[in-house]
Design a protein around this nucleic acid. Structure first.
Length: 419
RNA sequence: GGAGGGGUGGCAGAGCGGUCAAAUGCAACGGACUGUAAAUCCGUCGACUUCGGUCUACGAAAGUUCAAAUCUUUCCCCCUCCA
């Protein structure tokens, strides 16, 4: 399997996106054929609109799609308007909450936004396109669905699928509703094949069961070979999934997370992850990746900066990436109060208790927490630890018309006095 | 429908009348050491506080008691087995 002919699969392999494929040679041949003839292959990536933005944990398949498109193929992004009304049992112990129509619409809009940061949408031959499975499920008739699709599924087989099996083994409840999820996803795949000629599905490895559900349905019902391709689940050296920072998801959409924080997330990645992340989260050529990941000790920080910059650039645009980088350099390397830090404006700084200022910046959840942090020397005012928890700000604290507040070593913010 | 077992802090999971703002583990946060890394060590981890305390919390509501997460009743939800 190391001798792929298609550009796409070679890239996947080289950059660490390759986990499992329903048929290596077949998929490779199909892609190669498409790449050679200039006729785009069509592949899809599904996601459920359970939130209004994707986060870093979703980037892996997104980047795969991005490469897919770069190789000249056409990506479809499927939002599960219908399946979200059911809930995917994979990897979950509990039934998912149902969403009302309004949130659903809101979420779909947010997802489209997330997708469009990584993929080019439009009407061109290999432009990405957004589809919603609600379109074909909303009018479906239960009996005909059972008859047309249900006949192709064996319950015996379904019971052996991981998503179902683990749930049963752990004696976690699983409703019939969820049990049907894989039929719906299988149907999605075939539906996309029928209307768009889509023959490939790309996803994280946890979707394997759902993918094969589709490829098998395709083979049985339409006599076509569909391909499934999965990425490994990317974890850090502790085996934790990527994508959480301070317990919060690192969001793709800027209204959920500032570009500076996005940048910082990648800047603070562990040493062991640098190479992996460069391959996966950036478009940098492999030569460059290899050079950067070879860096050791202090030098590896250079690699991290590039990683953070490149990753931010893809998601937030070059201007934002530069701004985030500058802010980081100013705050961390020059110890100045950079321009892009979280800022609050107050009419007058005079007499404002520091504790309240931290509260307003959102660095602390309560005054008690602020007091605690002060006792632990965790809060700083213009880089000097605060000793008096009742300290009130005054004009004397202003530096260039602003006050720099820090929590710990990494969180910095500014208070500006309206002039 | 019947019989049993449950619902405790971000999660997992003890407690089963006062000493419980609630063990322990994980996660998280601060500090030290460093490189805005990892590992390690120390500390913190409901809210408010004039630091004496005050308030809100153990599914929901009512009750017993000087005193309830702990007992009683009703309700809601979940699980297991049987039909």
């Amino acid at each position: 399997m190391s001798n792929f002919k298609s550009l796409f699969l070679n890239i996947m392999l080289e950059r660490g996106f390759y986990n499992q494929c329903t048929n290596d040679d077949g998929f490779d041949a199909y892609l190669y054929e498409c790449e050679k003839s200039g006729k785009p292959a069509v592949g899809y990536l599904g996601s459920d609109p359970t939130g209004d933005s994707l986060h870093v944990g979703h980037i892996v398949p997104l980047m795969m799609m991005r490469w897919f498109q770069k190789c000249g193929h056409k990506p479809l992004t499927l939002v599960g308007g219908a399946t979200a009304r059911i809930g995917d049992p994979s990897g979950k112990d509990k039934l998912r909450p149902f969403l009302d129509e309004e949130t659903l619409q809101h979420n779909i809009k947010g997802l489209k936004k997330s997708f469009s940061k990584f993929l080019k949408f439009g009407d061109g031959a290999n432009d990405a396109q957004m589809v919603d499975n609600w379109d074909w499920f909303k009018d479906i008739n239960y009996l005909s669905f059972l008859r047309d699709i249900g006949t192709y599924y064996s319950v015996n087989r379904m019971l052996t699928m991981d998503s179902v099996k683990t749930r049963l083994e752990r004696e976690q409840p699983m409703s019939f509703l969820e049990f049907n999820y894989m039929l719906l996803q299988g149907y999605d795949f075939c539906q996309l094949y029928n209307t768009y000629g889509c023959r490939a599905q790309i996803a994280g490895s946890d979707q394997w069961g759902n993918i094969t559900s589709g490829t098998e349905l395709g083979r049985r019902k339409y006599d076509v070979e569909l391909f499934g391709f999965t990425s490994p689940i990317i974890t850090d050296s502790n085996g934790k999934k990527m994508g959480k920072s301070e317990g919060n998801a690192v969001w793709i959409n800027e209204e959920k997370l500032s570009s500076y924080d996005y940048y910082q997330y990648f800047r603070n990645i562990g040493d062991a992850e640098v190479g992996k992340c460069l391959r996966i989260y950036t478009d940098l050529p492999m030569d460059e990746v290899r050079r950067l990941e070879a860096l050791k000790d202090k030098e590896i920080n250079e690699a991290k900066k590039i990683l953070a910059f490149e990753a931010t650039k893809i998601c937030r645009g070059e201007a934002e990436a530069i701004a985030a980088q500058n802010t980081a350099i100013q705050t961390f390397e020059q110890g100045e109060a950079g321009g892009n830090l979280p800022t609050i404006d107050v009419p007058s700084i005079e007499g404002l208790p520091v504790i309240d200022a931290f509260l307003q910046l959102g660095f602390v959840a309560s005054k008690g927490e602020a007091r605690r942090l002060i006792k632990q020397a965790g809060l700083k005012l213009n880089d000097a630890p605060i000793v008096d928890e009742n300290y009130k700000l005054s004009a004397a604290d202003l530096v260039n018309g602003q006050v720099k507040l820090s929590q710990g070593k990494k969180k910095h913010g500014l208070i500006k006095q309206a002039s």
